[in-house]
């Protein structure tokens, strides 16, 4: 996966391969899905084993689990209101799934499943379908009034309605591309500078000295990417909450 000769191969890290040996190959189970399983296992373990003590004064693991719980709960209740509590498990699952995907992807040899537009678009599509269904279930036909704000002059309808429809339909695209692009850019940068370390390190006596520069950049980048990993999960969750707010309240 590193530099082959004198080339920089920043994209092969995103290639899908089979995981779990012949069984995985038979059902097209990819290493991306394997890391999804790992992330899901980490989430479930954190929320069950971490909460197992059921302590009044929590320990570290329990405090971490409670922090995540309350963080997402405040986010959902803050955006949607108290009637949004029923959607809390969904937003929590989404937030943790994206967060763990981003963070686990930063480990060496790990695969970042959130760097695949298909995955992020799949998640965004779930959000889109869910919010639309919630809006239809709560408001019925009135939901379509969402595309034409009350009080706007009727002659503006031919302009407003298409704009609103396009903006509504573009939600899953913006949601998925934002996460995907952030993850890809971060991992490409990391890979490029890591390759620089290897390439420069081979340049005779001064090589190792010069190679420390891209190494230092990568150290800084890892910190930055941790921030981005959290931030993008947060953005994904809060946008989902905002869409749910629109679905529940129609503006």
């Amino acid at each position: 996966m590193a530099a082959e000769g004198k080339t920089i191969d920043a994209l092969s890290q995103f290639e899908l391969t089979h995981a779990l040996g012949p069984v995985g190959a038979a059902v097209n189970f990819t290493q991306s899905n394997a890391f999804m399983l790992i992330a899901a296992a980490v989430i479930v373990l954190l929320m069950t084993v971490g909460m197992a003590p059921r302590a009044i004064v929590p320990g570290r693991l329990q405090a971490a689990a409670e922090t995540f719980y309350e963080f997402v709960e405040n986010l959902v209740v803050g955006q949607v209101g108290h009637e949004g509590k029923r959607y809390f498990p969904f937003v929590f699952t989404l937030f943790m799934f994206v967060l763990l995907g981003n963070v686990i992807g930063l480990f060496p040899y790990a695969f970042t499943y959130t760097s695949h537009i298909a995955v992020t678009f799949g998640l965004a599509a779930i959000v889109f379908v869910l919010t639309t269904l919630v809006a239809l279930a709560l408001h019925g036909k009135k939901f379509f009034g969402y595309f034409f704000p009350e009080g706007a002059p009727l002659w503006l309808a031919p302009i407003i309605v298409p704009v609103e429809v396009v903006s509504y339909l573009s939600r899953p695209i913006s949601l998925s591309v934002r996460l995907f692009a952030n993850m890809v850019a971060g991992h490409v940068l990391l890979k490029v500078f890591a390759t620089f370390v290897v390439l420069l390190g081979g340049l005779g006596i001064v090589g190792p000295l010069v190679a420390t520069l891209p190494l230092a950049v990568n150290v800084l980048l890892i910190g930055f990417e941790l921030l981005v990993a959290f931030l993008q999960a947060y953005v994904f969750a809060i946008l989902t909450s905002i869409y749910l707010h629109d679905a529940v309240h129609l503006h």
Binding site: L16, N28, F29, S32, N33, H116, A118, V119, G122
Partner: peptide
């Protein structure tokens, strides 16, 4: 594998 990945993801 792209489609399989999404199906497994779901």
């Amino acid at each position: 594998l792209m489609l399989a990945q999404v199906v497994w993801m779901l």
